[in-house]
Write a protein that binds this DNA or RNA. Sequence first.
DNA 1: CGCTCGTTGGACTGTTTAGTCCATGTAGGG
DNA 2: CCCTACATGGACTAAACAGTCCAACGAGCG
Lengths: 202, 202
Amino acid sequence: MSAPRTIRGQETRARITAAASELVRDRGVARTSLDDVIERAGVSKSQLYLYFADRDALLRGVIAYNTELVLSAVGDDLARGSWQAIRTWFDSMTKFQHTAGGRSGCPVGTLVAQLAEGDAAAQRALAESFDRWQAPLEAGLAAMKARGKLKRHADVAALTTATMASIQGGLLLTQARRDPSQLAIALDAAYAHLRQSAAGRR
Amino acid sequence: MSAPRTIRGQETRARITAAASELVRDRGVARTSLDDVIERAGVSKSQLYLYFADRDALLRGVIAYNTELVLSAVGDDLARGSWQAIRTWFDSMTKFQHTAGGRSGCPVGTLVAQLAEGDAAAQRALAESFDRWQAPLEAGLAAMKARGKLKRHADVAALTTATMASIQGGLLLTQARRDPSQLAIALDAAYAHLRQSAAGRR
DNA sequence: CGCTCGTTGGACTGTTTAGTCCATGTAGGG
DNA sequence: CCCTACATGGACTAAACAGTCCAACGAGCG
C-alpha cells in the first residue's frame, strides 16, 4: 500500500508527494485537499490511494519529503566542525528566505503546529526529523570540542538545541512579519552565542 | 456584525472565542469545525454568525484572544527593565510548559504556520501581535541601556528580536519533542546572550 | 503472442462542512 | 405595558471532501 514496485510507480509516488509538499507550503495543510493534490500532480485518485493509506499518511509523506529537503541543504563540512561551515550554513538559510520573500517559513518547522497535535505518528516523525537535522551540527560541535576549539566545559547538546531554536524562531518571525532580516538577526545572535564557547586564543 | 451591543451578547461572543481558542490549541485549526465550536461554547450557529462574518473572522478572533492571553503573562516590571524581571518572565514560560506536558506550544506562534499563508489579514494580525508582545521587553532593555546597565553600543532592537526567536523556537521544539526542557535550554541561551550586552561592572 | 501483476482512470457515495434563513424569545426604554 | 432592537434556536442547503470501487491499460516475462 505504500511501496511502488516499478520505476513508473516510484515516479508517480514522488510526483504526488512533491505536489502535496508545494501546496502545503503555499496554502497550509488546512487549505490543501486531496483533489488539489491529484490535480497538481496530474494523477488520479486511485493512484494516490495506491501509495497512501489516507490523508494523514500522505501528510506524513510530506514530512519525510521536506526532511530530505532541509537535509540536502546541509553541507558535509558542517559535521566535520568549523566556524566557517556554521557561518556558511546560516548564510544559505537567510539567502533562501530573501529569495522567497520571507514567505512559507521552514519546510519542517511549519508542520509542527499543523500536524503534531492531531496525529501522534506525525509528531514522532517530526521529532525524528529534527534529530536528523541537528545531527551534523551536533557532530561538528563535538568534533570542534575534541580538537580544543571549544571550551572544555562547553555543553554541546545544549548549544545544538539553542541553535536549532534560534533557527526555528527566526524562521517563524520571518514568516509572521514577511521580513527575512528577522532570521538574519536570530542567526547572528546564535552565532555569537556559539562563539562564546570558543576556546580562548592565548 | 462584529460588536455585541448588550452585556449578554458580549458574554456570548467571549464564550465563542474561548471555545474556539481551546479547540485550536488542542487539535489545530484544520481539525476544528464550526460545529465543534458551537457545541463546546453551548451556542447556536446564528449566534456565531451574528458576531463573526465567516470562519476566517472567527480565527482572527482567536488570534486576538490568544494575544491577550500571552500579554497577560507579562509582568509590569518587564517594561521597567531589570535582569530579574526577564528571568522571572522566562521562568514563568518554562513552568507553564512543564505543567502542560510540552503540548500545545505557543498560543500565538502556533497560529503563524496555520493561518499566515492562507489569510493575509491574519498574517498582519499576527505580526502586530508579536509587536505588542515584544514591546515590554524592548522598552525594558531600552530603559536598562539608558540607566547604563547595558553596553553603550548594545542594539536593543536586535536583542529583542533574537530573544523572541529563542522563545518561539524553544516552544516549537518543545511541542515537536513533547519535551519542556527544549524551551528551558533555549531560554538559558537567550539569557546568556542578553547578559553579554550587560555593561562591565568595574 | 498472451498472461499476469502492477498501475491508471474516473465515476460514485456518504459525510462533513460552511454558510443561510426565518421564526421565536427577551430585555429595557418610552 | 408594549414596542423595538438585539439575541437565540435550529432546520436547511449546496458544495467540498475523503475514501471506495471496478473496469481498463500496459509492460515485462515466459
